[in-house]
Structure formats: structure tokens, C-alpha cells
């Protein structure tokens, strides 16, 4: 818990934490059905209404409440981002660790494969994967996860390699610890810091990528809401109903901002170099 306390003391960590928590609460409330209106309920008499007391953020072209859709939209965007980063972290960690540990041919294969994925422009890679599998929330998760796996693999492999060379691993081995034990215990512990920072930043990127894919019609499918989809719908109505554009645009920027601030703070706190400086 000391990390949490440190975060609260760190200025950008505090702000980031608050922003992320606010969005998380809104998302959970939306998912729990606590939004002011049913996010899917159409009201033909209340189309394209400007923000008012009853509809805080106005209504869309179907007469649906924008605030309610924003709440479930944020939830959807968060779910896709969390799951895709989780998958990428897991895959990247396994690949990075095994590549560093076994070395040789396996290392070569894994790292060249990651080079291939990295050489692909991210959005085009995601686009191709979705074109093959058909758009849905789950496909987005997979596509984004594949895009970010190489980054995690690299993040894990670097420290794993240098740790592998260190004496304490040899020492542990000479004491009779199993290979598996060494890997899981010593290596993983020393990877937590860079991984935590990377995960937070990747969450910010994943939010952006998910929004971009939904904006192109390749992510979340209507009538469900997501931030990118709301932006796409707002495009044609920008001049008629500016709130349709501004609400999801601001929400998206702030959600990403929250994770970016949190990531920065974590980097400050976890990076041994700055830590020493702080001490």
C-alpha cells in the first residue's frame, strides 16, 4: 500500500488517480443500470435535444440520452482496453521471459516475429485482423492485444536478460532451486516495476486505438455505445448538434489523460534512478 500512498502524494499521480476513478465509477454505474436513462431507449419526440436539466448532455439522433450512453460507452471502452492490455501483458510476458531464458533459436524466432508485428503500422494491423474476423468487441480486444504484444515482449525481455546474467540466479540455482522457481520468483519480481508503468501507458494507447477502430465502424457495434462510435455518429451532425461531438471528445481525452498522468507518476516512483533522487 505504500505505493498507493506515494501516488497520492505525487501531484500528477493524485490527479491521474482521481480522473481514472471518476471514469471507473461512471462506467460501473452505467453498467449497473444506474444511468439516468436507458442508454438504448429511443425517444422519437426527443431527438437531437441540446443539453438541458433533464438531459444533461443532450440527446442523439434517436432521442437517446447522451450522458447515459457516455457512461456505458466509457464502460465499453474501458472493458476493451483492460482486456486487450491484459492479454498483451500476459502474452508479452510469457514470450519475453521464455525468449530471454531459453535464448538461442527460440529467442531468435520470437524476437523476429515481434519485429514483423512492429514493422506493421498499428492501426493497419488491427484493421486487417478485424477484417478477417469480423468486427465485435472481442475482435477489438484480440486485435489491440496483438498490436501491443511486441512492446510487452521487449519490455520484459530486456530486464529478464540482464537479470539472468546476474549472480543471484546462479546462486539460487546452485542451492537447488528449480528453473521454474527461479523464473517465477526472482525474475518476475524485478519485472514488476517496468511492467506496471508499461501497462498504465498501454491502457492509454488502447483507449485511443479502440476509439479509432470504433470510429471507423470496426469496433463496438451499434446500438451499443462506445466513445469512438459516438464520435463517428457525431461527425455528420457536428454543426447541428455540437454536443454530440464535444461530450465524447472531452471524455476520451480526459480518460486517456488520467492513465497518462498515472503512468508518469508510476514511472517517477518506480524508476530506481528517480527514486534515489527523491530519497
Amino acid at each position: 500500500m505504500s505505493l498507493f500512498r506515494d501516488l497520492l502524494r505525487h501531484p500528477s499521480g493524485r490527479i491521474g488517480l482521481i480522473i481514472v476513478l471518476v471514469f471507473l465509477l461512471a462506467a460501473i454505474a452505467g453498467k449497473a443500470g444506474l444511468s439516468p436513462f436507458d442508454p438504448l431507449a429511443q425517444d422519437r419526440l426527443a431527438r437531437l435535444q441540446a443539453p438541458s436539466a433533464s438531459h444533461l448532455f443532450g440527446t442523439d439522433m434517436f432521442g437517446r440520452d447522451v450522458l447515459s450512453r457516455l457512461m456505458v460507452g466509457v464502460a465499453q471502452s474501458f472493458i476493451v482496453s483492460f482486456f486487450s492490455v491484459a492479454v498483451a501483458t500476459l502474452a508479452g510476458t510469457v514470450l519475453g521471459l521464455t525468449a530471454a531464458w531459453y535464448g538461442g533459436l527460440w529467442d531468435g524466432i520470437v524476437m523476429r516475429l515481434m519485429d514483423v508485428l512492429l514493422a506493421f503500422p498499428a492501426i493497419l494491423l488491427a484493421l486487417l485482423i478485424i477484417a478477417i474476423m469480423g468486427p465485435s468487441g472481442w475482435t477489438s480486444i484480440l486485435a489491440i492485444a496483438i498490436v501491443y504484444t511486441p512492446i510487452f515482449t521487449r519490455v520484459v525481455r530486456g530486464p529478464a536478460l540482464s537479470l539472468k546474467r546476474r549472480d543471484f540466479v546462479d546462486a539460487a540455482r546452485s542451492f537447488g532451486s528449480s528453473r521454474r522457481y527461479i523464473m517465477s520468483r526472482h525474475l518476475a519480481l524485478n519485472l514488476v516495476a517496468p511492467l506496471t508503468v508499461q501497462i498504465t501507458l498501454a491502457l492509454a494507447w488502447a483507449l485511443i486505438t479502440e476509439a479509432g477502430l470504433s470510429f471507423l465502424g470496426l469496433g463496438t457495434q451499434p446500438p451499443q455505445a462506445s466513445l469512438g462510435l459516438m464520435l463517428a455518429d457525431a461527425r455528420n451532425l457536428m454543426e447541428m448538434a455540437p454536443w454530440l461531438l464535444l461530450v465524447p471528445a472531452v471524455a476520451l481525452s480526459f480518460a486517456v489523460l488520467g492513465f497518462n498522468l498515472l503512468g508518469d507518476a508510476l514511472r517517477d516512483l518506480l524508476d530506481p534512478k528517480t527514486r534515489r533522487a527523491l530519497a
Binding site: 429511443q42 439522433m61 434517436f62 465502424g217 451499434p222 446500438p223
Partner: peptide, 9 residues
């Protein structure tokens, strides 16, 4: 997409 959503509703 809009037509499908209104028809659905």
C-alpha cells in the same frame, strides 16, 4: 446502421 437501429426499436 441507423435504419437497423430504428427498426430494432
Amino acid at each position: 446502421a441507423s435504419e437497423a437501429q430504428v427498426i430494432q426499436s
